[in-house]
């Protein structure tokens, strides 16, 4: 039977679900193997659950969304979070360290019209998540790999090693060692293909922490490159600011 697949959106930029439509070469082939029955960004027809696979983009930032993710979990056999917002709360999780009331009054004339939570949290903080795709945005290749793996009933092949491995694999000279360019690569999960160093800049952390990141050691290397500490702290408070490993590192620095 063809797998019934749904795509859900929470607080996000829509970029990760757009990656589905950006797989131009694979899109029509993928649509031949799955039944995309719920994907409001792309189709008007909407079918109720249950679903075999649910992809969730975005973070939880409103009381309504906190309740909605519970219902979605009930409806999905396999729940896959896609992207930095869904896996760690996104850049909007910066509010978790600030006063959301002040944020609201800086942007809106009538904060009382808004219905928002004080925090932006990952989907896994609310429900059990079966698979997580990291990245801001996710990698199109990882997305296609995950769809085909889940449909075939196997685990997708997803890395947890640092970006450095990808730089070595593509033959990029280390920007941190060779040029003293601050780079988060040693503590950040691979998956993008090490794009930034190949464009002569340091990694800025789209995929969040790799497994067992050694931020203290990285800090020594950034010190040696003459980068002020606040710059490193700001870099860690980026698109995966909500990741526990980075929060801990920020506290320790």
């Amino acid at each position: 039977m063809t797998a019934r697949v749904a795509v859900f959106k929470f607080a996000s930029c829509d970029g990760c679900q757009l990656s589905v439509l950006d797989a131009e070469d694979e899109l029509l082939a993928i649509l031949g193997t799955i039944d995309l029955v719920e994907f409001p960004e792309a189709r008007t027809l909407r079918e109720p659950g249950p679903y075999d696979i649910g992809f969730v983009e975005g973070s939880v930032t409103t009381p309504h969304d906190a309740a909605r993710i519970q219902e979605i979990r009930e409806e999905c056999k396999v729940l896959v979070t896609i992207g930095a917002c869904a896996t760690s709360g996104g850049i909007q999780a910066l509010r978790n360290m600030a006063d959301v009331g002040i944020y609201a009054s800086q942007v809106y004339a009538h904060p009382e019209y808004l219905d928002t939570l004080a925090t932006s949290t990952a989907i896994a903080d609310h429900v059990k998540v079966d698979l997580a795709l990291y990245g801001c945005p996710v990698s199109k290749e990882q997305l296609v790999e995950t769809i085909t793996a889940v449909v075939a009933g196997r685990r997708p092949d997803l890395p947890s090693h640092p970006v450095c491995v990808e730089c070595k694999a593509r033959g990029t000279v280390c920007v941190l060692v060779a040029d003293g360019t601050p780079c988060l690569g040693p503590v950040v999960r691979a998956g993008c293909g090490a794009i930034c160093p190949s464009y002569a800049r340091g990694c800025y952390g789209c995929f969040g922490p790799c497994s067992t990141p050694n931020v203290a050691s990285l800090a020594t290397a950034w010190d040696a490159a003459g980068v002020p500490r606040p710059t490193l702290i700001r870099a860690l408070k980026g698109f995966t600011v909500g990741a526990p490993e980075f929060q801990e590192a920020v506290r320790a620095l």
Partner: peptide, 8 residues
Amino acid sequence: PPRFFEAF
């Protein structure tokens, strides 16, 4: 939902 970019 608002994400408050202008604030952060």
